[in-house]
Design a protein around this nucleic acid. Sequence first.
DNA 1: CAGTATAGC
Length: 755
Amino acid sequence: MAVTSSHVRSKNHKKLKGVNPFRNKLKNQQSDKKKPVIFKDFEDDDQDEFLDNLVQSENKTPTYHKLTKQELKTRADEILEKQRKKLPVYQNKDEIMTYINKNQVTVLIGETGSGKSTQIPQFLINSVSKGKKIAVTQPRRVAAISLAGRVAAEYGCIIGDEVGYSVRFDNRSNDKRTKLKYLTDGMLLRELMMDKKLSQYEYLIIDEAHERTILTDLLLGFIKGLLQGSRKNDLKIIVMSATLQADRFSKFFDDAPILFVKGRTYPVENFHLSLKDSEEQTDMVESMIRSVIQVNSSEPFGGDILCFLPGQEEIDKAVAILQKISPILKDSYIKQKLKIPEIVPLPLYAALSPSKQLLVFNKLNSNKFQRKIILATNIAETSVTIPGVKYVIDSGLRKVKIWRHELGLSTLLTVPVSRASCQQRSGRAGRESEGKCFRLFKENDFVNLPSQSESEIIRCDISNPLLILKKVGVKDILNWSWLESPGKNAIVIGLEELYSLGALNDSGELTEKGEKMALLPLAPHLSNVLLEAMERNCISAVLDIVACLSVENLLLNPNPDIRDIVNEKRYQSATLGRRHGDLIMLKEFYDIFNGLDSVPEKKQWCQEMSITYRGFQNVIKIRRQLKDYLKKIDANLEKNEQFKNKGTASNDDEESDDDFIDTNDKKIDVESILKCFLYGFVKNTAIGMPDRSYRTTTTGEPISIHPSSMMFSKKDNPGIMYTEYVFTSKGFARNVSRIELEWLQEVAMGVKKFK
DNA sequence: CAGTATAGC
């Protein structure tokens, strides 16, 4: 029986060699094989849309917009017969539905390929009351969008009709007609801030709950409250999770039943280092390269190799070496008359330019005797699915950023992954046919790994989550229904932080300012900066910079061979930035980008500066959204000095940003801007010492300016302010600006001080 | 004079 209720099967680790206890084989899958996608022009950033469609390609969305109602229906019937009915979840529909109908909360373990995310919501769609909806949450935007597309096709409607989605910047749902809405968990949380009862929903399906993102954890905590209170009788919950976390969810919801549905993937054989291998420490990159060569030469042609390494540095190093030895190997194979494919190494990590990321999806020329070697971070573990992978080599390592509450800094550590991660990684080899996973550690080490990774909530800065709790009206945060509490210490420090930013009053209640901060889609510090800027006549420039800060990897790390040229170009372009620091540099770059007339010019400039064009498009989207929020927050905004003479802007024009330009748009008021930032980052300051080093104002610890900063070579700053403090080989200030000591005094007087 | 996983509003 595919469905097992009320318990999670225990796993026998002794079986691991040669047998994968987590997968079951299913035949006749050839029809589901993905078609190869070939890209002709990899330099075009506009192809990012294609990338979005490719990630999570299991749910690839065809477009049915032009089809008539009848055609939609016909198509849906066809999918039902040919595909849906074969899914394990569909085959166990009645049994699953019995459990869901009987229980307020059901935990469902659905393995990859079981069809849980697409089918379960459809089983429920016809039993939803008039005017009510089903919400299905996802941790990632692309997943929400592609699932909605797939399900709309299966249901036989246009996206945004009965089936829709809602993610940041993109809402395709209809308040009245949409019955089934896929959304990011962050989006549902935002809806929760507006309507504490989530009254429009009758079913909440929390998908990928085992990933334990902060936002999913918060949602589950709020849901528990709802089930015990106002929504006791008219709300049902389905938590979808991987095996290892299912027990936790079941216990959290008063021993809710656990259903287990098998997946449809191929078996993967796991190999570990032999026990006889020497204990001596070898270089990870070196052993990865050895393994790649070995696997490539010993395994039959056909099927690519996916390698997991902890970070960009290791990946770049490995790619460089593999590229160097690839032609040498090829020659030697030919000379020895060995039939071994040539290796084509490809890097994959988030900070890689979008065009280079796309290369991993490119199908190699079938006439050439080659094998792709993809060297990836854990971006390939959940976010990106690469077709054609048959072999996985796992270093067993990853990088984790850990927030130190008491120090207000984050540390970046390379740590062993969890058993859950190992299984997820090896599963990547069995998506299209049976595969093999080679682990660069011993079986004994595997057994001793933690069963799952530390959840986000206990290793991240929780000031924003705490602000959300306050906004939703949680009084006793320490004893709130935490799925996992971040701990008293973290909570107290986080609340102190909110208090010092003026979000909470002396009694710990949310202030008017705190209300506004909770509404802004930013970290509380940055919200505070924006609110301060509203009163200082420099909101436009500060908004530009804050929007830039909200985009990850806007400025790429240029490759070593062009690094000096790019750095010099950046330095030359930021005439104010090289004196005042990185924040002002961002403002200058923003202005330059916007000042260029045509898209080709903008792209050209981005290329030269090693900036992502797409990143800047996001900056502009975010800026527009922040501006809209600010308008909502401050009803008097239109009367504000900066908006006089402009009146109400006509909203039909996409470029209606004009109403937000301050009077001094040509001249950058450096002092005002940096003082605004000080209001959010007073604690992130350091004072210049006579020996030209810096010491933090809070603890007196030595701190160095990170080499990636414009301020790195500038030694005459009386003080510095930074938006990030990280500890790697030593304490580094990242994103650094020069400040005068008088500013520090002035702002510190204006900021409520704790202690 | 160093070198940063991933995701979300």
